[in-house]
Design a protein around this nucleic acid. Structure first.
Length: 320
DNA sequence: GACCATGATTCACT
DNA sequence: AGTGAATCATGGTC
């Protein structure tokens, strides 16, 4: 019996679980990570193990008493020494403990298989479904100014794409780096998705504008962020973002508006004509990609390309 | 089988 | 902890 407690930790730390929103959120996260699935299977193995173990123990006891009874009956006809009884019981117990050993062994195997399968599943690369890639791309290109989905957005995307949050993070990590490395290559893709979402974006903006007009004719109090570098294009959005020097990952409302802006600007640019490729100004030029790289501002605050006052005025200044 | 695309992993950085 | 960058490893296509 020592082996039992030593082999597998029996008592899981799971008692009851009152409906706690925090717990539910964690559960969802684990589910998204595919962890609960693993845990569920593990629990299943554990349950089987314990019921089997119990069964064996019970059977062992029953069998011993049965044998004892037989021996007792036999003792009437012939003398049976206590030593013989002890020996009998010993044999029975040894037999059953060997059975238990087998049970433990197969349980361990099952756990190992489960674990390796779980790890393999995460390690093995399988292409996402076309739909999933589409969803991810749509998000990416409509948030091109700030393709850093929040935790909630990642969870949402994960759910939509039927992949894990980690996979979403991986995807965005890869996408950002690969997009940045070779923007030209992704031009077509960017155009495609921009056009795709343009209609929805236009509708949304139109609705928002209408709503704005009807509701309050005053200035929109978009306390949004955005905070990225819009190279040229002295659009009104500059004002919006300079309202708040905050970094991205800010309010979702702002992000939404920004995504629509991205899409719309793309479309506007497209219709307004552009120099194809080699002029350097790709139509879907990385608004916020500065010369040195990333979307991430603050890495190199210098960015002194040409102090042509205009709208360029990267971030910095704005001494509020 | 070569080649490219792509998801995953690792490591360094902040 | 989240990210960028490099790299690995596999899938898919020819």
């Amino acid at each position: 019996m020592v082996l039992v407690s030593a082999g597998l930790s029996i008592r899981g730390a799971q008692e009851e679980d009152p409906p706690d929103p925090q717990l539910m959120r964690l559960d969802n996260m684990l589910l998204a990570e595919g962890v609960s699935d693993y845990r569920a299977k593990l629990t299943q193995i554990r349950q089987i193990y314990h019921t089997e173990l119990e069964k064996y123990e019970q059977a062992c006891n029953e069998f011993t008493t049965h044998v004892m009874n037989l021996l007792r009956e036999q003792s009437r006809t012939r003398p049976i020494s206590p030593k013989e009884i002890e020996r009998m019981v010993g044999i029975i117990h040894r037999k059953f403990s060997s059975i238990q050993m087998q049970l433990k062994q197969s349980t361990c195997e099952a756990v190992m298989i489960l674990r390796s399968r779980f790890l393999d599943a995460r390690r093995k690369r399988r292409n996402f479904s076309k739909q999933a890639t589409e969803i991810l791309n749509e998000y990416f290109y409509s948030h091109l100014s700030n393709p850093y989905p929040s935790e909630e957005a990642k969870e949402e995307l994960a759910k939509k794409c039927s992949i894990t949050v980690s996979q979403v993070s991986n995807w965005f990590g890869n996408k950002r780096i690969r997009y940045k490395k070779n923007i030209g290559k992704f031009q077509e893709e960017a155009n495609l998705y921009a056009a795709k979402t343009a209609v929805t974006a236009a509708h949304a903006v139109a609705a928002a504008v209408q709503n704005n007009q009807t509701n309050s004719p005053t200035t929109p109090n978009s306390g949004s962020s955005g905070s990225f570098n819009l190279p040229n294009s002295g659009d009104m959005f500059m004002n919006m973002q300079s309202l708040n020097g905050d970094s991205y990952q800010g309010s979702q409302v702002g992000a939404n508006v920004q995504s629509q802006v991205d899409t719309l600007r793309h479309v506007i640019n497209q219709t307004g004509g552009y120099n194809d490729g080699l002029g350097g100004n790709s139509l879907y030029s990385p608004h916020n990609l500065n010369a040195n790289g990333g979307w991430q501002d603050a890495t190199t605050p210098s960015s002194v390309t040409s102090p042509t006052e205009g709208p360029g005025s990267v971030h910095s200044d704005t001494s509020n």
